[in-house]
């Protein structure tokens, strides 16, 4: 039982703290926004999961929720917002349009937001029920706890490859 024991326990503690204090940036483009408001409201109350606090600046957020259709024209905007967020960061595709493009199969619609940014959790539905979104959020929390988020895995890979040695890696 050496140093690894303590660092892995530290990682567990930090990830535990991260998963219950998700500051979200809602990127709301379409009708799914209505269902997203229901999620925020007192009936479904996403605050119970520690993710109620929206930050309307990507620099203060660590969860990007893409709510609604992403068009090709919005792609560069979405990519810039994602890149402005500080790491570690996570993303949720809310609804079938953000996940796959949905029933839009045409010249203007991006077939899924994962064409331009990495997505951690896909929530299908048109729109998804708030229960589905809460389920998706819990799945994301499990991913965060286990270090399985996209950015977490990349950090782990880079750390194992000998990069970022100065970075304290939970």
């Amino acid at each position: 039982m050496g140093l690894e024991f303590y660092t892995s326990k530290l990682a567990d503690a930090v990830n535990w703290a991260r998963k219950y204090s998700l500051f979200q940036y809602p990127f709301v483009t379409a009708c799914c926004g209505m269902e997203f408001m229901a999620l925020w409201g007192p009936k479904y109350d996403v605050a119970r999961f520690g993710a109620e606090f929206p930050r309307f600046s990507p620099r203060q957020a660590d969860l990007l929720i893409i709510v609604g259709t992403i068009t090709e024209r919005q792609g560069p905007i979405l990519r810039r917002i994602y890149e402005q967020m500080c790491e570690p960061k996570w993303t949720i595709a809310f609804g079938v349009c953000a996940s796959t493009g949905g029933f839009y199969q045409n010249y203007s619609t991006m077939p899924g937001a994962d064409q331009c940014i990495p997505i951690d959790v896909y929530i299908p539905g048109c729109p998804p029920r708030p229960e589905q979104v809460l389920d998706g959020l819990i799945m994301l929390q499990d991913k965060i706890q286990n270090g399985q988020g996209f950015v977490q895995r990349r950090e782990k890979r880079e750390h194992d490859a000998g990069k970022n040695k100065l970075k304290v890696l939970p």
Binding site: E72, N106, Y107
Partner: peptide, 18 residues
């Protein structure tokens, strides 16, 4: 001009990709 009937339905012109 995408609403012309001879514009291919499958053609995409992405601005950004991962």
């Amino acid at each position: 001009h995408p609403l012309r009937k001879d514009y291919p339905k499958e053609r995409r012109q992405p601005l950004v990709r991962r």
